[in-house]
């Protein structure tokens, strides 16, 4: 009986809250959104946020059929989405919430400091297979190439910047997490991998890409090639929301505290730099 009562109380308490704010989209942005949601809950316990990371495309299509209030995205709108907006007479407003840079990392024993995009492309498409093909002074060992799996937003961005329309070689190892990549690079002297700069630590060696070291400054001024803004889209067809949970979320995200959390999640704050 007691259990049933507790359950009922729980059910009632869930439904007694106002309609939840549904945030969907990119997995890259998800850790940031999670931190925001947690912090907002602390400040205002009555707010009810539902988070779901299912890829940027899913978030934007959820915005179209009104199943989400906010769509996180690690990419800009596709032409087809802009067309659909015109057809349905809708306007989605993009807000840059953070910046992200992708670092190329190798084991510390590799005597290589700089890599060009074209070399990187040759490595990931399988044209270059040993280190001495990059630089004759490097050992004649096979390069162990690691990539995030295709589900990852980092993978998408990396292929966009490096591969273009080419395909990654099938012999590239697809792994489940960035932490795994970091471990491998630490232990395997022939490994190469890429990761969001938030994940880089002192155990691995970060390569310059086209002569530029990824850092807060070089990502923000876009001199580092593999950098990108992260967005959230809100439906502004009826005008910008002046009250309500969407406005509250937006204000928190772009606030000083919100942007500090962005840095804490390993990304680069878009405002207040």
């Amino acid at each position: 009986m007691k259990k049933i009562l507790v359950f009922l109380v729980l059910v009632v308490s869930v439904f007694s809250f106002s309609a939840p704010l549904v945030v969907k989209g990119s997995n890259t942005v998800l850790p940031i959104a999670q931190m925001w949601a947690e912090e907002m809950k602390k400040l205002n316990p009555s707010i009810n946020i539902t988070l779901e990371g299912a890829g940027s495309s899913t978030g934007i299509s959820a915005l179209f059929n009104n199943t989400a209030d906010i769509a996180n995205s690690s990419r800009w709108l596709k032409a087809s989405e802009i067309e659909q907006m015109g057809k349905e007479k809708k306007l989605f407003m993009p807000i840059v919430v953070a910046y992200d840079g992708i670092a190329v990392v190798v084991n510390k024993s590799i005597k290589l400091d700089n890599i060009s995009i074209s070399t990187l492309k040759d490595i990931y498409t399988g044209k270059i297979t040993t280190w001495n093909q990059i630089d004759p002074n490097l050992p004649k060992n096979r390069i162990n190439v690691y990539s995030r799996n295709t589900a990852s937003g980092t993978y998408e961005t990396f292929s966009h910047f490096v591969l273009g329309s080419d395909k990654m070689s099938p012999s590239v190892r697809m792994v489940e997490s960035t932490q795994f990549e970091a471990d491998v690079v630490l232990r395997d002297s022939n490994a190469i991998a890429y990761m969001g700069i938030g994940y880089v630590d002192s155990n691995v060696k970060v390569l310059k890409v086209e002569g530029v070291m990824p850092s807060k400054t070089t990502v923000l001024d876009s001199t580092y090639i593999m950098s990108r803004p992260l967005y959230m889209f809100i439906n502004a067809t009826e005008g910008f929301p002046m009250t309500g949970p969407v406005k509250e979320y937006f204000s928190f995200a772009t606030s000083k505290k919100g942007q500090e959390l962005v840095e804490k999640a390993g990304f680069i704050a878009a405002y207040g730099n």
Partner: peptide, 25 residues
Amino acid sequence: AAIIPMSLWDPVRPLTAAIASEMGE
């Protein structure tokens, strides 16, 4: 790595791994 292994040291990616890795996203 979704290749056909030619030696014992080559990586493989069995079907189960592909499903587990990609179904989430």
